[in-house]
């Protein structure tokens, strides 16, 4: 299989089926169904999906932790089993766990040594990474005393220790507080500027909007669509807005195709394709607005629209 040289990940017809239950009555779960996807070098790609959509399964197959039922994966032009390929990959698992008996620095030294670094080269790289993930001060403390955010930053540190060309992260913002979330997002933006290819598996829309160049939406183990973030942000996807108006004005919006609900105190929820369209509508109706705020982001609306129509919204996993 030959792949263009600018592809970081090339996935073709990937499927994964799990068999659970008793042998005489097996339950077959299709975690992934014929996934075909290309991720280009130096881009930030976000794989979106509900819980159980197959995002983690896809990452585990890319990294060689799971064997696919069908299909193939090429990473940086080679097989994941090649040492040289893995030397150029960084991986951060969801809620990474480390031996609690080591300090952050010791962990990075260990992971660096697995990348073949040693001596002063290793120590220099550890210092650089600690600086990058803003953990220099706490680096000599034991991991057992770290907060969730600090653990996540050491996690990203170990992923970056080998100067990876490709960074694969599974729910990197999981469980982070707003400060930790912002710090992680800033790290990703820095990495993107440095030319690292990012493959993020997430369901946090804000992260996607600010970090990613393209997204893929996975639902029920199937890829629903792939789109560029800038195209989505300029698209005419309908977003709900909450408009604060007097109750008298609210009645003028009643019955319009955009109006969704009216609150007793005068608030109106309306659906508009964009902010300008919404403002035009309000002007046409001569409604005096006291305030206006979007109830969801364009990305979120796009995502929900994309997965709409599925029978189950609780779980994205298909089973039979």
């Amino acid at each position: 299989m030959t792949t263009p040289s600018n592809l970081a990940i090339h996935i073709k017809g990937l499927s994964k089926t799990y068999k659970t239950g008793f042998w005489f009555k097996p339950k077959i779960t299709h975690a992934l169904n014929n996934l075909t996807l290309d991720v280009y070098e130096k881009e930030a790609f976000g794989l979106l999906g509900l819980n159980g959509a197959g995002k983690t399964t896809a990452i585990k197959i890319i990294l060689g932790f799971l064997a696919p039922t069908a299909g193939s994966v090429q990473v940086l032009g080679g097989k994941i089993s090649d040492r040289e390929v893995r030397n150029q990959i960084g991986y951060l698992s969801e809620l990474p766990y480390f031996s609690r008996q080591h300090t952050g620095r010791e962990l990075l030294e260990y992971f660096g040594s697995l990348h073949g670094l040693s001596g002063s080269k290793l120590h220099r790289r550890v210092d650089e990474v600690l600086e990058l993930v803003r953990m220099s001060k706490a680096s000599r403390e034991k991991v057992s005393g770290y907060s969730k955010g600090m653990l996540q930053r050491i996690g990203i540190g170990q992923a970056l220790i080998g100067k990876p060309k490709l960074l694969i992260c599974d729910e990197p913002m999981s469980g982070l507080d707003p400060v930790g979330y912002k710090e992680m997002r800033d790290i990703f933006i820095d990495l993107k500027k440095m030319g690292t290819t990012l493959f993020l598996n997430t369901h946090i829309m804000d992260e996607v909007e600010r970090v990613c160049d393209r997204i893929g939406i996975l639902h029920g183990g199937q890829l629903r669509e792939v789109a560029s973030v800038s195209d989505i942000l300029q698209s005419s996807v309908h977003v709900d807005y909450w408009v604060d108006v007097d109750s008298q004005d609210a009645s003028r919006l009643a019955g319009t195709p955009f109006q969704k609900s009216i609150a007793e105190n005068g608030g109106v929820q309306i659906t508009g394709s964009s902010l300008s369209e919404t403002l035009n509508l309000l002007n046409q109706r001569q409604v005096k607005t006291k305030g206006l705020r979007p109830l969801s982001s364009v990305m979120e609306a796009y995502f929900l629209k994309s997965i709409a129509g599925q029978s189950s919204t609780e779980s994205g996993r298909a089973s039979k």
Partner: peptide
């Protein structure tokens, strides 16, 4: 540590 808490994942992803 390695299997229940999945610390092995990060190590096996290394070269």
């Amino acid at each position: 540590t390695e299997f229940d808490q999945k610390a092995i994942y990060l190590q096996l992803a290394k070269p």
